[in-house]
């Protein structure tokens, strides 16, 4: 396998070129995941750019992104592969009665009747691939067991066909909101990156990159205010995505100063619980 990146600095530069601003930890961890050929588990609160990271890596490395969205009830047939039963049935009926059963049996369990699902597809591709397994914490524990073989050896065992090993190891990113603790076995096989809310400088740069036309001064005020909101004891701290929404809102309303009135007017963009809003109004002295 040829690596995507040459050094952490290279990661940072190329991610920045596709508008993803990585800090030291992100750059080093992505570089290591690439260099060691290990899956990368990204955990953190909602809306800090976990999924974006995978997309940015794919873009920066010129690789195709294959995405497996996890949900409750996800099973092997949706994640790995499935036999195309209808086509197999047609094949059996078309074969007629003169053909021996053994031959038909061998015929219907071939590539032709195999439906690829994201995990198998990612493993069989010979071009550069980024495999994104999104919201891993939403699946049932059994699916984690399924992932173990894929993630540690990059191979899939299909009883009728044998073991399919990776032609070229994909770059795997798993994301999780920590709604449930992932199993130790899965964590052990991954490199771990905890993405948290960024520091004010980095968040300001993100806002400037994502919201064209915003004044640097306003962006600075904005991220500092968001930082203050996050420090309050509230139920749902504003995410980066919400900071960006806020910046767009201010721009659309034509506000160029983030003063008490402006904050009180637009607070609903960042805080989405009544009790959180009340608390912010009280603590920041908005009224």
């Amino acid at each position: 396998m040829t690596a995507f990146f040459a050094s952490p600095a290279d990661v940072r530069e190329r991610l920045a070129a596709v508008d993803y601003l990585a800090d030291d930890a992100i750059a080093t961890t992505v570089f290591l995941a690439d260099a060691l050929g290990k899956p990368l588990l990204v955990e953190g609160p909602a809306g800090v750019g976990k999924t974006e990271l995978a997309k940015a890596v794919a873009k920066a490395a010129n690789a195709e992104l294959i995405r497996l969205q996890c949900y409750e009830g996800l099973d092997e047939a949706r994640a790995l592969y499935e036999w195309n039963y209808k086509k197999q049935l047609l094949r059996i009926q078309a074969a007629g009665s003169d053909q021996a059963w053994e031959r038909t049996h061998d015929d219907i369990f071939t590539e032709e009747f195999l439906l690829e699902r994201p995990l198998l597809a990612a493993i069989r591709r010979s071009e550069p691939t980024v495999l994104l397994i999104d919201e891993t914490d939403k699946t049932d524990v059994e699916v984690e067991g399924l992932l173990l073989e894929v993630l540690s050896d990059y191979q899939v065992t299909i009883p009728e066909l044998g073991t399919v090993a990776a032609v070229r190891k994909p770059f795997v990113v798993l994301t999780s909101n920590a709604a449930r603790e992932l199993s130790e076995a899965l964590k052990r096989r991954c490199l771990y990156l905890h993405l948290d809310y960024p520091g004010p400088e980095r968040e300001r740069d993100i806002v400037l990159a994502q919201v064209p036309g915003i004044e640097a001064d306003l962006a600075e005020q904005l991220v500092r205010t968001v930082g203050t909101l996050r420090a309050l004891e509230i139920k749902k701290a504003p995410s980066i995505a919400e900071t960006i929404d806020w910046a767009r809102t201010l721009l659309a309303l034509g506000l160029d100063q983030l003063d008490e009135a402006a904050v009180a007017q637009t607070l609903g963009v960042v805080l989405k619980h009544v009790s959180d809003q009340e608390r912010a109004v009280k603590e920041l002295g908005l009224r």
Partner: peptide, 10 residues
């Protein structure tokens, strides 16, 4: 006001 609170936290 707000500006002072934000600065104070910083």
């Amino acid at each position: 006001g707000l500006a002072e609170r934000v600065a104070r936290r910083r």
